[in-house]
Design a protein around this nucleic acid. Structure first.
Lengths: 344, 344
DNA sequence: TACGCTCCTGAGAGCGCTCCCATGAGAGCG
DNA sequence: CGCTCTCATGGGAGCGCTCTCAGGAGCGTA
């Protein structure tokens, strides 16, 4: 059984054709006679031959691998269900495209610079999907410089034209504000994601836009978290202490959990005393009490679209940057209060 | 800036040596004169040269890539914090070793057979880490057949000698049973992970062992879930309905969430009416009410050890199979009741 | 002075593929 | 019947490395 690797030449010999013809069959080129093709395919099927990836890469200068880069402190990363879903989406798409997914997680920003020497330099990938970029991330410049195809999950912080896929953070947040307004709440706060992320900036902007449209009173109620439960817990506690809040829009599921806890610990009830809407919609609803109303973003879809887009860029099908924004959806559960009591 | 790729030959020319000497320097071989080495290193530093991975793979028959295989229905996979942590651990170790991590997620078992033709055939990886294997998984046979180095996260279901890294499921579960006993509970149930997984088998066996040692009454209280919250919710509800339970050991964090909800919905309190201990210890404690006492398993460590072990196997440093079992740790919080009232 | 030894070095071959070009067979046309 | 044009095919070259081997320099020893 210790079958030594077959190569194109040997397959050719078995099928009575040359290396070149076998290569043409494998790569689906059209200029091969039906008989030759059939014979080659038969031999491939019965030998289980697979072309050697490294040899192929070397000759064609294409690896068939895409990388998913997750910079930023990653240690606690997977406490947030976001990244798992994203990976899943990307994996689905690469599977479909027949490419391979490599994962590059970085614990500190300093490690991130290794992308150049460890990934780009050796030519490990054909392209990269880059997530969770902070504002002013130098990685993007580097990628542009070396001409490496890439897609950003999120959006470029400086509006420069690059390929990107994002959820409609702004629209979703606006919708959350309007929904809270429709319940009759007027004193409405927000605990936003960090302002050094585009998601943080956009969700906050969308919320403020909606609040302005609905004439909500947000004075003194705008806080910022760092994606962690603890940060939102602290922000919520502070908000409850200093002023009368009727409802809060919390910038992520995970932070909402912290906010709910703060409300509970203050002896208040959600939604009766303080209503909550979160962003993400990734948490299994039964995991919180009450079940969270959230602006759900299609994270898996984002991953799939990003990978598909990257593929198109690599294939050279797309050359002018494209920004894809996927819609969010308001999923109404209990934490925002019942609409009945307060329809406007 | 459009620097065309440098190669060994050119670096050699710049340093006044041959391709071979440059190669020796890069691969850290000892038989190079200090002067030559210094000159080469200087040139490499100033040019930023990196050897081409594909060329290297082709010539050396080594890819520098390890694959992480997660078979089984993966769609809901990331609802469980387990896999994120595992990926993190593996990533840490590969980063350290300077190798690349590729991820292979499969949605259905049918896709899993693609490992052979899509991964092993083309020679994409030097070795594989295989997780979540169900009992009787044919993938293992295939890997053994083709001589691909691999490490199982978990343990082989048939006790065959392969490399594996696992948490001490049995010991941890036993410990949980004993701890519940130490609180004075006698009617103690279990909701175990599926019995077609080794984790399910082992946790159940450990629990029964501990229960027997402590003379607990488990009759009619042994249920099985499928890792999902819903399955545990149903099992718990049924348990509460049909008999008087004082405490339950639930086979995973995620399932414990379901069980807690069932207890709450039955109008009972945890831990006053029914105490709960879970397995995993991955959930942020504040995410549940009450905070869960759990048998914590070192998932990230498991990932790291698995990757390190695989590396050793690939390097040929290890040839006789090794089973590594990492200890679990009982983390006591509120859901098991206070010890004071019931010390035995 | 000559011989052996070790140590460093360079050159050739080859990994398995793709790409390009030359060739030959056949079809279509005047 | 000869010409061109198309299409299928095979072979050479080369991608950038590693590996092996031969040779030269330098040293010590007889």
């Amino acid at each position: 059984m210790m079958a030594t690797r077959l190569n194109l030449e040997e397959i050719g010999k078995l099928a009575g054709v040359s290396r070149s013809t076998v290569s043409r069959v494998i790569n689906g080129e059209s200029n091969v006679s039906p008989e030759a093709r059939a014979r080659v395919e038969a031999v491939i099927a019965e030998t289980g031959y697979r072309p050697h990836a490294a040899a192929r890469s070397l000759a064609s200068n294409r690896t068939g691998v895409v990388g998913l880069v997750i910079p930023s402190a990653v240690a606690t990363l997977f406490d947030d269900p976001y990244f798992g879903r994203l990976i899943l989406g990307v994996s689905n798409a690469t599977q479909l495209a027949g490419t391979t997914l490599s994962l590059f997680l970085f614990r500190e920003e300093s490690e991130e610079s290794a992308i150049g020497s460890r990934v780009i330099g050796p030519g490990l990938v054909d392209g990269l999907i880059v997530t969770a970029t902070r504002m002013g991330d130098p990685l993007i410049d580097e990628l542009v410089d070396v001409g490496m195809p890439f897609v950003i999950v999120g959006r470029p912080d400086d509006g420069r034209p690059v390929f990107s896929v994002d959820a409609d953070n702004r629209g979703g947040a606006r919708c959350a504000a309007l929904h809270l307004a429709s319940h009759g709440y007027r004193r409405v706060g927000m605990i936003s994601p960090p302002s050094n992320t585009t998601a943080g900036v956009d969700r906050r902007a969308g919320f403020l836009e909606g609040a302005a449209d609905a004439d909500l009173d947000v004075s003194g109620l705008l806080h910022e978290g760092d994606w962690s439960e603890a940060s939102a817990h602290a922000a919520m506690a502070q908000m409850l202490e200093s002023s009368s809040v009727e409802a809060v829009f919390v910038g992520s599921d995970r932070m909402a959990v912290g906010a709910l806890r703060a409300i509970r610990e203050a002896g208040l009830r959600c939604p009766e005393d303080v209503a909550v809407i979160s962003f993400d919609g990734l948490l299994p609803p039964s995991q919180t009490m009450p079940r969270l109303t959230s602006v759900a973003q299609p994270v898996t879809d984002v991953g799939e679209r990003a990978a598909a887009l990257l593929n198109a860029v690599i294939e050279g099908e797309l050359t002018t940057p494209e920004q894809i924004v996927l819609p969010t959806e308001l999923v109404i559960r209990e934490s925002c209060g019942t609409t009945e009591g307060n329809s406007s």
